[in-house]
Design a protein around this nucleic acid. Structure first.
Lengths: 386, 386
DNA sequence: ATAACTTATTCCAATGAATTTACTAAGTGA
DNA sequence: TCACTTAGTAAATTCATTGGAATAAGTTAT
């Protein structure tokens, strides 16, 4: 049970409309004040006054004149892409990744730090210090994606087994140290935020991003908002049972999706059936698929088949028409997508499937840092639905 | 991709705060102006002026004084439960049900009309006319739940095979005829709205109501909002495949949840295995369970088992902690819940299951009309999250 | 070239909802 | 009776949006 909604005050209205104007310009590319007014239903006066603030804040710039349509030519506005820089952090199991991006998600700096087994927090500080040292644009804040159960509202890492973190108030720690706004969220959720902000399905009301790597997690947008769940555990689809009498999973059950469709499951199976001197890698799987290796293809098809079942469940439940696959397995591209789509068609209603678009992410290995920064962007500048 | 959010205007703010005050009183039972101010963070002045309007509108009344706590005793306010009456309609496959309820969901009138094979719309008019004829409180509007694909935003029944309706602009038709606000939604969605407004999990941020009758559908609340889906098809879980090589379903696939866990599937199986002179009914199943009939119990357990799998998927995906079962099968109560909970524990992560609460609906057979009225209530008076 | 017209943008007074401050109402406790 | 507390109202203030007029800067018809 959640409490009452917030009250509406003048300041709130002001902020809301200010963000609305900014978003219109952000989405519009190069747009005039009048067109912003038309788009938002705000009066030209209100738009002008907000644009004045945005110009003052150096978030927006005037970029020339539109051709006249029989009257005074409009002054075109566009977002000053590097008006702010954003720090995005990816606290992965084995390394820390950090990027500095601009307001459009263009990467301006990238730092990586292999975890040395020592205090993770200290190494995180080190990474942020490095990133900040090389930046001279005003920094909007810090966004963080991390594995585990993360209370985004409180800014607390409730559980992150791999990192040894338990109820760590990371937001407040970093906020105090750097004097910047800090936001954190689960890495799968953050991946979805990345797609929602910078990906191909930008601004989709309903969007499901399935992250297939060592484990399998999903990030879900419903009605334009990220789904956290009642205990910040939404998207744990790795442990959905798809093979009632399958392999034992680390969670204690049998036949979890993770045991048949995760990247590690695939590679482990390859190591067992087609041993090499070195363990298999995704790149080698790609090569084998290109060479049409039947054993490899059969294993990939199997993974795709079960992913298709899981996605069919999602599509049936939520009627989300945009599904995106991310994570290392997504690198297989069409070799994964084609059998997956077949499986989806077998396991969900035809009318639903026909309208569903399953794609592979195009954001690459920076997706988590991008999403972390997008989380920050959404909260600080309102580049987000309402 | 959805458009920009709406602008904030003074009128909007006013309406927002007006509704906020009303909701605080609605939720509060008997509450003073000052306490409303504390709860909402509005100033006492703002609360007072809004309360004045609510008193004027006869939506709220003063109901006495609170004991003094060392100062002037507070005047208690409460919602005038019958200040408005709401029409809720259930357009079922074989009959039309209509109720008039008050602001608290208390039923003031009930009318039923068996469909005679003729024009459904004409019979719907007839039902509404009957309901209106016997009411003398001001009517807030009309809410409708119907099977099929319903565009709630547009107020259009896109597809309702059983009723022979296709792209019927029901909202506008009824709105013109009766001069009242009209809202419609899919019956499963409406069922969830009923639980969210009047049920045991009132105001739960995340809530899944599974409706098991002839078919199986779900209504889902996420982040306090009903999930419609991209094409108004959310909640179609009846056709999730739970038995990869099971029975052929009417949808063309094999082993859909509907083929093993719907009320009709259960009764059909009983008619086949334990034939009677009359077809089996749910009441007879209840009686057989009370008498511990092993065959009946095995079949119920089987249905529960597969429902448990489907619910495990939902819980894993959404981390919703409130699950409610409604529809005719839910009448089996604990005989259904116990095996279902066992199955859920087998198919979802322990930590998730431990926090999940699976219950049976207590709203009975008026649930759709109640939910339809609640949809109206939410939209007209803002008894809803934001 | 000039006048008439369009369209974009700004200026300025008016509006109105929330806020602030001051005040009244109505109790308790010393 | 007086000091104090709490509830609620009234009047003055604030400030973001609004609406109308003014200005800027073009195009089109004459």
């Amino acid at each position: 049970m959640q409490g009452l909604p917030k009250k509406a005050s003048r300041e709130q209205s002001k902020l809301h409309n200010y963000r609305l104007v900014f978003k219109a310009i952000y989405d519009g590319g190069a747009i005039s004040r009048v067109d912003v007014a038309r788009l938002t239903n705000l009066t030209p006066t209100t738009v002008s006054s907000n644009v004045a603030i945005l110009l003052e804040e150096e978030l927006v710039q005037e970029v020339g004149l539109a051709p006249s349509g029989g009257g005074k030519p409009a002054t075109l506005l566009s977002v000053l892409d590097d008006g702010r820089h954003l720090i995005g952090l990816d606290v992965a199991g084995h390394e820390l990744r950090g990027t500095i991006i601009n307001l459009r998600g263009a990467i301006r700096q990238r730092q990586t730090l292999a975890l040395n087994g020592g205090n993770v927090l200290e190494q995180l500080y080190q990474l942020i210090d490095q990133l900040l040292a090389n930046t001279h644009s005003p920094v909007l804040g810090i966004g963080i994606g991390a594995p585990g159960v993360i209370n985004t509202t409180a800014g607390v890492v409730q559980q992150a087994v791999n990192l040894g973190w338990h109820n760590l108030a990371l937001r407040d720690l970093l906020g105090k140290r750097y004097g910047l706004p800090v936001y954190l969220a689960n890495d799968s959720h953050v991946t979805a935020i990345a797609e929602h902000t910078f990906g191909s399905q930008r601004n989709a009301a309903n969007l499901v991003v399935i992250n297939v790597g060592r484990g399998i997690g999903a990030g879900i947008f419903i009605n334009g908002r990220i789904v956290g769940g009642d205990a910040w555990g939404a998207g744990e689809i790795g442990h959905v049972v798809v093979q009632p009498h399958g392999t034992l999973c680390r969670c204690g059950h049998y036949g979890c999706l993770e045991t048949v469709a995760s990247t590690s499951a695939l590679l482990t199976k390859l190591d067992a059936t087609q041993p090499q001197s070195q363990p298999w890698t995704i790149a080698e799987v790609q090569a084998a698929l290109a060479a049409n290796d039947p054993t490899v293809r059969a294993l990939v098809d199997e993974a795709a088949y079960y992913l298709g079942i899981a996605i069919a469940n999602v599509v049936g439940l939520l009627n989300a028409q945009s599904i995106i696959l991310a994570g290392s397995l997504a690198q297989l591209g069409n070799d994964l997508l084609q059998p997956l789509r077949r499986s989806l068609a077998q396991h969900a209603l035809q009318t639903l499937v026909a309208a569903t678009d399953v794609q592979v992410s195009t954001l690459g290995s920076d997706i988590v840092t991008l999403g972390a920064a997008a989380l920050l962007l959404a909260n600080e500048l309102g580049i987000v639905r309402d």
